[in-house]
Amino acid sequence: MKTQEELTEIVRDHFSDMGEAATLYVQVYESSLESLVGGVIFEDGRHYTFVYENEDLVYE
């Protein structure tokens, strides 16, 4: 099982292909040891929320 830090790095790496991230945040109260819930805000103003669970990243 991966730590939240490892899950955060996986998510950060995925979003790095989409541009320069200004902020990546984790909603600790919705996350667990198995999943990471949060969002990313890019330098150009785009904002996505995400759920990373079971090696699957879903974002909108």
Rank of each mutant, 00 (worst) to 15 (best):
M1Y: 13
M1Q: 11
M1L: 13
K2T: 05
T3W: 06
T3M: 03
T3K: 04
T3C: 14
Q4E: 10
Q4N: 04
Q4H: 06
E6K: 06
T8M: 15
T8P: 02
E9A: 13
E9R: 09
I10E: 05
I10Q: 04
I10V: 06
I10L: 09
V11A: 01
V11T: 01
R12A: 07
R12Q: 06
R12E: 03
R12F: 08
D13G: 12
H14C: 15
H14D: 02
H14N: 04
H14Q: 07
F15L: 04
F15C: 10
F15G: 02
S16E: 06
D17S: 15
D17I: 14
M18P: 03
M18E: 04
M18R: 06
G19P: 04
A21D: 10
A22C: 14
A22Y: 15
A22W: 13
T23P: 06
Y25C: 11
Y25H: 06
Y25F: 05
Y25V: 08
V26I: 13
V26S: 01
V26Y: 03
V26M: 02
V26L: 05
V26E: 03
V26D: 03
Q27C: 15
Q27T: 15
V28M: 11
V28D: 07
Y29A: 04
Y29E: 04
Y29R: 00
Y29L: 05
E30T: 09
E30C: 15
E30I: 14
S31V: 09
S32G: 10
S32Y: 09
S32K: 10
S32M: 10
S32A: 11
L33Q: 10
L33E: 09
L33A: 11
E34N: 14
E34D: 07
E34C: 13
S35F: 14
S35L: 15
S35V: 14
S35Q: 13
S35P: 02
S35D: 03
V37P: 00
V37I: 12
V37W: 10
G38E: 02
G39S: 11
G39C: 15
G39Y: 15
G39N: 06
G39F: 15
V40F: 04
V40Y: 02
V40Q: 01
I41K: 05
I41Y: 09
I41D: 00
F42E: 00
F42Q: 00
F42G: 00
F42W: 04
E43N: 09
E43H: 09
E43V: 11
E43T: 12
D44H: 00
D44P: 02
D44T: 03
G45W: 06
G45F: 07
G45P: 03
R46W: 06
R46Y: 03
R46P: 02
H47Y: 08
H47R: 04
H47L: 06
H47W: 08
Y48D: 01
T49M: 08
T49C: 14
T49V: 11
T49E: 05
F50T: 00
F50G: 00
F50P: 00
V51R: 11
V51Y: 09
V51L: 07
Y52Q: 00
Y52M: 04
Y52N: 00
E53P: 01
E53F: 11
E53N: 08
N54A: 07
N54V: 05
N54M: 07
N54H: 09
N54Y: 08
E55L: 09
D56C: 15
D56Q: 15
D56N: 15
L57P: 01
L57H: 03
V58A: 08
V58Y: 11
V58C: 14
V58P: 01
Y59F: 13
Y59D: 01
Y59S: 03
Y59P: 02
Y59E: 03
E60Q: 13
E60M: 11
E60L: 10
